[in-house]
Nucleic acid binder design. Structure first.
Lengths: 115, 115
DNA sequence: CCTATAATTCGACAATTATTGAAATGTCGA
DNA sequence: TCGACATTTCAATAATTGTCGAATTATAGG
């Protein structure tokens, strides 16, 4: 992921309604959520929400598909993954940073049960 | 880390010069870098850089200390850590997400060398 | 074809953010 | 105290972003 895409993604998430919408979509999983449902849930006018969803889309963080009359948005985990990867690599000094937060299913830490 | 701080942090990083400056500071480590040095390295006018560094500071991503005539900026790893933690928790569906990116010393991928 | 529903696009405006030279502030050495 | 240096603050302006009602596009059912 190049710096430019990263900036677009960060900018997309750096807004109250968009961050909230993205969190909602992450929770919703692959099924996603209809634009209207998101707008209603967040208490934001449909046209405003549409604007924000377009931003998230432009940043590649969400995908959209039509389903009958509704347009369903879904979080793009790969993109989020890419963003996290970039931040890990470039903004955490290689110093594990959230090494904890990310890797806490260490069923393999037996490597050196030492002592 | 609350959503509001997260938005400030994301917004702070969502800008070409600021992302570049932050990366530079992460590399620089605890020693940090003088404002002027950052500006020169990035080819940005001092007053502009000062503005951006203030933004990073306001977002809590960098700390500053005076050292003689210079003002030294340094990345605040704890803050970055907090940001990453939030994103992991709220924007990655608990789905490992960057489990890979973060923990790539997988000498254990022999799991299915298959075929 | 007509109506209702679901979203987006348009347009006009408000608000925030970015850019810089010039002036002000703080620090040092002579 | 004076002058040079390192940065920030100011101020004016440009550019981008956010808001939301009204008009428009797309789909479904009768």
């Amino acid at each position: 992921m190049d710096a430019d895409s990263v900036i677009r993604a960060l900018g997309a998430l750096a807004q109250e309604h968009r961050l909230a919408a993205f969190r909602l979509l992450v929770q919703a999983g692959a099924d996603g959520m209809a634009a209207g449902a998101i707008a209603e849930r967040l208490g934001v006018p449909a046209s405003s929400m549409s604007f924000h969803l377009a931003q998230l889309g432009h940043a590649g963080l969400v995908s959209q598909r039509r389903e009958s009359r509704s347009i369903i948005y879904a979080a793009d985990y790969a993109a989020m993954n890419g963003l996290m990867g970039y931040l890990m690599e470039n903004c955490c000094a290689g110093v594990g940073c959230v090494a904890d937060a990310g890797c806490n299913q260490p069923d393999l830490t037996q490597e050196r049960t030492a002592a």
